[in-house]
Design a protein around this nucleic acid. Structure first.
Lengths: 342, 342
DNA sequence: TTGTACGCGTTATCAT
DNA sequence: ATGATAACGCGTACAA
């Protein structure tokens, strides 16, 4: 298939020579197919196929001052939540001419800023960043990125450009309301990492308690350490130490919830009667656990897919439609872990 | 910091003019610092800083017929196992001048082959592929990739170039041996996805049983569906349906193990007495579960880091040291789920 | 040690 | 509809 025996990559010139046209025509056949004759188009396509030609993205980017990469900056890779977003991004990009450039900010706004600067140097076709907590400098960079920019994971008041996500505040309020409606009177909060997005969830928890006239007591227990199942167990143990009246917990994510459930089992606490447990994100395992664990379903894969689609649309449509915000919402998934017998 | 008010990117020429030297000198200051005078080097560094210059990767790649990209092809992103490998890769790349280009084969060898072809077009500095099951065409491509190639996740007989991983066969044999040594006489196998790597684990399981004179009966239960916690529960239920004598299970991964554990709890099977459970990979949750679940620890992050390091070494050392195989091994992590009272 | 000048593969402008 | 050809920004002989 690939005839380049001498290890020299097949270039556009080779294709042009094979067909007997100029490189300009080959280039056009690829970029503006509508302006080249059908006859040539098919001959060129055949030559491309038989020679095994693949365009050089570097040359293309250099000449067109626009690359076909969609730059993506996420806080973490190992975190399941972002893996799902990535999954959506990749599957939406597949089949298009775009490729993904992934950066990893480690939840550090400064690191994110540097990545934005670095990636912008490639003149990406589009850019996807996480959340709404960019530094001032980063915001300035995004302001004249020269390409569509999508903020994923959250909705918020002042989108840079495009935005797709949901309100973490609202989701937390809804989860908290669910606990209270199930009859729990002393719900607690287990938090880890406590980045700004997480803080907004805590905010929602607190506001919902306040709205219902419930005192939070000493039942908000958080740490800045990254979350894990193990940590979930520790957090619950600590919480019960200072606030033994706790009868339910809203966990900042499913790992914490799962760990708390195991800890409750270790203590022979009956779930959901003595302790209700609610997670966040509704990862697959929540429904499979014993007992199944209530969680807040979020549409992570859809956020990734949607973000790419927003970029593709913006690229296609002449009207940039800036300022567009897509709210994917969330869904409380009530399961046995909070289905308290009255 | 970035003085480019008119939205024109700062180029090397700008830096050169600022300092009053030629672009060649600036280029050398970046690529071959040792051949340029200290005085100029510091002036150039200052100019780069004050102008906010960042090199254009496309131009660099085009001019040098070598990009600073390390191409990585993994079967899946959402799978935790590969997320950890990615994590290692990214942290090893951080601080170097290299960046990562990630592709996602969806466990499809043909898709992998196409990605290799595509990525090779960028003349990457190095390439990381997963496992040892490439198509013939892919192997041919890798053979004259013109850059260091690392196979991660497995060790095997015929490395293309570099290799870092462990023997899935050996690991499975060791886990199986552990179960038998704990007194289980009718161990079963729960498998999902059943890609070649998984098959090798099954192979190890079977060979270990055979070596010990134990008949596997109908206790090997597999499916090609992708694994999940939910699936783990289903698989155990099905296995117990056809082979009720099963007194222990070796699960192809931790998700399956966790799901099986929940299913066992649903059935009020006592773990580890009535059913021993062993997972694979030793993800963080295994030690935090109740009961804690025995698993085979693998060094996924280290594989990613090591793979990058192998590439960097090969790039630095003039001697390519091809054919190098790094065996990271594995470690049985015995926990309560298989600690049977005799 | 530093400068000059050409080339990398493609796109885009201007002719034809 | 197609062909020349000049950029694009940087690396690297070769020259000085």
């Amino acid at each position: 298939m690939n005839k380049n025996k001498e290890n020299k990559p097949v270039t556009m010139r080779d294709v042009a020579q094979e067909v007997g046209v100029s490189v300009a025509t080959v280039s056009r056949a690829l970029r503006n197919p509508e302006v080249v004759s059908e006859a040539l188009k098919s001959k060129i396509a055949a030559a491309i196929e038989s020679l095994g030609y693949l365009p050089d993205p570097a040359a293309r980017a250099l000449a067109s001052t626009r690359s076909d990469v969609i730059a993506v900056i996420l806080p973490s890779i190992s975190n399941n939540v972002f893996a799902a977003v990535m999954d959506g991004i990749y599957s939406a990009v597949e089949g298009t001419r775009y490729s993904v450039q992934l950066g990893y900010s480690r939840y550090a706004p400064l690191s994110e800023e540097n990545l934005i600067r670095l990636f912008l140097r490639q003149r990406p076709a589009g850019m996807i960043v996480t959340g709404i907590d960019q530094t001032d400098a980063a915001q300035a960079l995004l302001a004249d990125a020269g390409c569509p920019v999508v903020q994923v994971m959250e909705t918020g008041p002042a989108p840079h450009d495009l935005m797709i996500g949901f309100s973490h505040y609202d989701a937390a309020r809804a989860a908290t309301a669910h606990l209270i409606e199930q009859g729990y009177r002393n719900p607690g909060f287990l938090g880890a990492r406590m980045d700004p997005r997480t803080q907004r969830r805590l905010h929602g928890f607190r506001d919902e308690l306040r709205a219902r006239g419930i005192d939070e007591g000493r039942r908000v227990h958080t740490t800045t350490r990254p979350s894990s199942v193990t940590l979930g167990g520790h957090l619950l143990a600590e919480l019960l130490g200072v606030a033994p009246e706790t009868d339910a917990i809203f966990c900042i994510n499913d790992d914490i919830a799962l760990g708390a459930m195991f800890e409750a089992q270790r203590r022979n606490l009956r779930i959901p009667d003595e302790l209700g447990i609610c997670g966040f994100n509704d990862m697959e395992m929540m429904g499979a656990a014993e007992p199944p664990i209530t969680s807040v379903r979020t549409f992570r894969r859809e956020m990734g897919e949607g973000a790419v689609q927003l970029i593709l649309d913006a690229l296609a449509g002449d009207v940039p439609e800036a300022g567009k915000v897509v709210d994917l919402g969330f869904q409380i998934m009530p399961r046995r872990s909070t289905m308290r017998g009255r």
